[in-house]
Design a binder for these strands. Structure first.
Lengths: 133, 133
DNA sequence: TTTACTGCAAAGCATTTGCAGGGCG
DNA sequence: CGCCCTGCAAATGCTTTGCAGTAAA
């Protein structure tokens, strides 16, 4: 059903499908679990290896958390985030305010843009209150 | 000289100063080394602990690399990045295109914004060429 | 047979945490 | 005396890598 790009392996398609079906971003570990829960399992290393390939192919976007985790989502999903620097809770921001930003040609001439990340950081109400205690 | 905010500890001021003097962002490890090279040394754990505090105080911004490292810079320095998803090389983008973006009030009403990160990812020419080989 | 991909387990590594010692009020 | 901050060393946890087995061509 989600047949796509010719030079995408089977495993890579399985990953793409799971990412597409999930509203959230998934970490490598989560993806691994989800795949195991379903019919298509694959080793953790394989999950990571294929995620890297998908990112380089421009099909998957990645976002790095302070914890060292990396979250993955389909590139076409253009969602950004608001994250509390204290508790780490993340809220999604629908609609991308950067969509049509022009970067200096000098920088992008020799660079194939694949995706971008925009994240806002600060303190959520809960942590603010806790702090001022 | 860089006397600042009253409720900033000595250690925290040392860190701020190093970050301010350096044109780049620094990782925790690098900062640790730089501090040791200078007169003011402090343990690695202390560096990290104080960096966290500085981020929460809104004085330092942080950016997470795919490698799991975190890079720190003064918040007032509003620089963004262009990063190759293959080799990881990063270029700085001067001038922030997001400066005056309005976020939905519903999201920010209960959230104290401290800083944001905007990063573009893709493939640099070198990696593009290598890939098509 | 040659090549590319996979799984498993071991390694890597930045960061975090536990805990005892020290400075300071 | 009590509280906070620090250093050291151990632990954590995600991700990467080495290597041998396997499927594909």
């Amino acid at each position: 059903m989600v047949k796509s790009n010719p030079n995408i392996s089977n495993r890579q398609n399985q990953i793409l499908e799971k990412l597409g079906n999930c509203d959230d971003e998934l970490s490598g570990q989560e993806l691994y679990r989800v795949l195991h829960a379903g019919e298509s399992s694959m080793g953790l290393a394989t999950v990571y290896r294929n995620l890297q390939v998908l990112v380089k192919k421009g099909l998957v976007r990645s976002r790095n958390l302070p914890t060292g985790e990396v979250l993955y989502a389909p590139v076409k999903r253009d969602v950004h985030h608001l994250t509390c620097v204290d508790c780490g809770i993340t809220t999604s921001l629908q609609g991308c305010p950067v969509k049509n930003i022009n970067l200096p040609q000098s920088k992008t001439k020799n660079f194939q843009l694949l995706f971008h990340t925009l994240e806002f950081f600060g303190l959520c109400q809960h942590c603010l209150e806790r702090q001022s205690t």
